[in-house]
């Protein structure tokens, strides 16, 4: 665990030392995650908490996918290409500490950004804070972790490191549509089977769990979404265990 935290600290230090990356992710995250729900809230003639909350959760899914999945894929493939992963491995660190540390770093960034976006919405719109705040926080952390694991899979299957970011775009779009990031009108147009398929993504589970955290209700209804996240996490862990590459393809 100590090694995981050491790698996470290193990742955080490198990220914070890169002003452009920090600024870019913060600005993009806040504009998307808070900007669109703010715009919707301001343009509705009457207060409609459900619509704004739906936009909030949809855009949060988009932001988490971009920060966790895309950033993990890009970071790991860039470090692999620069042979930094190989050097870290030669240092005596275990592979799980190297990957786990980077995931902890990225999940921390995603969680902090989610908190910032949520605070902005609670302050400037009529969306109330969640009735079950701990469930909401746990949901964000768990979903960010699963999405980061999917980012590791992208870094494995994308053959060219420069294509890692573009390769995640279809996944981001699918997550956004499924989670309601394009608004209730678009979501309402989707055929039932498409919505059902998109709900199988981790962001579909996030919308259900976070929705319950905001509205309150029986935790027993979360069996499906929790199972969804568990399956994705296991898929990610098994893929990483058997297919992760430390050396670039030559």
């Amino acid at each position: 665990m100590r090694d995981v935290l050491t790698v996470a600290r290193l990742g955080g230090r490198l990220f914070l030392g890169d002003g452009r990356a920090v600024g870019g992710i913060a600005v993009l995250g806040v504009c998307l995650g808070a900007g669109l729900p703010l715009l919707i809230a301001a343009s509705l003639r009457s207060r409609d908490v459900e619509v704004v909350l739906g936009m909030h959760l949809g855009m949060l899914a988009v932001v988490l996918t971009m920060v966790a999945t895309t950033q993990t894929a890009v970071t790991l493939s860039t470090r692999r290409e620069m042979l930094v992963l190989k050097r870290l491995r030669a240092s005596g660190l275990r592979g799980r500490a190297i990957i786990g540390g980077e995931l902890v770093n990225i999940v921390t960034q995603a969680t902090l950004l989610s908190a910032l976006i949520s605070m902005i919405l609670y302050t400037f719109t009529y969306v109330p804070p969640p009735q079950l705040p701990l469930l909401f926080a746990a949901c964000v952390v768990a979903v960010a972790g699963v999405l980061a694991l999917i980012g590791v899979i992208f870094s494995i299957v994308t053959r060219r490191p420069d294509l890692n970011a573009p390769a995640t775009i279809p996944f981001i779009v699918a997550s956004a549509v499924g989670a309601g990031g394009y608004g209730p009108f678009v979501t309402g147009l989707l055929p039932g089977w498409v919505q059902w398929a998109l709900d199988l993504l981790p962001t579909g589970a996030m919308v259900e769990i976070a929705g319950l955290a905001y509205r309150g209700g029986e935790l027993a209804t979360l069996t499906g979404p929790v199972l969804n996240l568990t399956v994705w996490a296991l898929l990610g862990l098994v893929t990483v265990r058997f297919l992760f590459r430390w050396d670039p393809r030559r």
């Binding site: 490198l14 030392g17 890169d18 470090r79 620069m82 042979l83 930094v84 190989k86 050097r87 030669a90």
Partner: peptide, 8 residues
């Protein structure tokens, strides 16, 4: 062959 973090 192994890389470093270039900005450190």
């Amino acid at each position: 062959e192994a890389g470093f973090f270039p900005d450190l």
